[in-house]
């Protein structure tokens, strides 16, 4: 494991690739209503980007970006976004998640519906990404302190 983590090629490639993975995840989330994709898939891809970072740069670096507290806040706030959107439809007299009744734009309920579908997808995505990352942090083995560099690798080069 430490041999992989020391490799400069892998570290550089991961550092360059993670922003693109995250942009792609946002694209998947936002196009969930009109094409393939959606909140779940986008959240999984976003989480996979951060898991990749945490795998290569180590748990400590990963937890600096995505601490347990932040994970907890995100995983519950995504559910809250979903619930608030659904219940606000109830408040305005419709069914649960019947977006058209929310009077954001009273003359154009179709636009409101499309907007609120995106809000719900974002909520799902936030929850899924936080749960995936916390699953990885819980399941993967705790790191040993890497004070000894493998000497054979140095000699091999």
């Amino acid at each position: 494991m430490s041999g992989i983590q020391e490799s400069i090629v892998i570290r550089t490639v991961v550092r360059i690739m993670v922003p693109f993975i995250q942009i792609f995840a946002l694209y998947v989330i936002m196009h969930g209503a009109s094409g393939p994709g959606g909140g779940f898939q986008g959240g999984v891809i976003f989480g996979a980007g951060i898991i990749l970072y945490a795998m290569i740069y180590g748990h400590k670096e990963g937890k600096q970006r995505m601490s347990d507290k932040l994970n907890r806040i995100l995983s519950s706030s995504g559910v809250a976004i979903f619930a608030v959107t659904g219940i606000s439809c109830l408040v305005f007299g419709g069914m649960f998640l019947q977006y058209g009744v929310v009077p954001l734009l009273p003359d154009n309920p179709a636009v409101v519906s499309r907007l609120l579908i995106d809000v719900v997808e974002i909520g799902i995505g936030i929850t899924v990404l936080a749960v995936m990352i916390s699953l990885f942090f819980d399941v993967s083995p705790p790191e040993t302190d890497e004070e000894e560099l493998p000497a054979s690798e140095e000699a091999g080069q």
Partner: peptide
């Protein structure tokens, strides 16, 4: 396409990572 997308992201991506992380223990 939607199901295939999920299968590729979850089945081939996250599940493999979680299984390997578990195997390391």
């Amino acid at each position: 396409v939607d199901v295939g997308f999920t299968e590729a992201a979850v089945g081939a991506g996250i599940t493999t990572v979680l299984f390997i992380a578990t195997l390391a223990r």
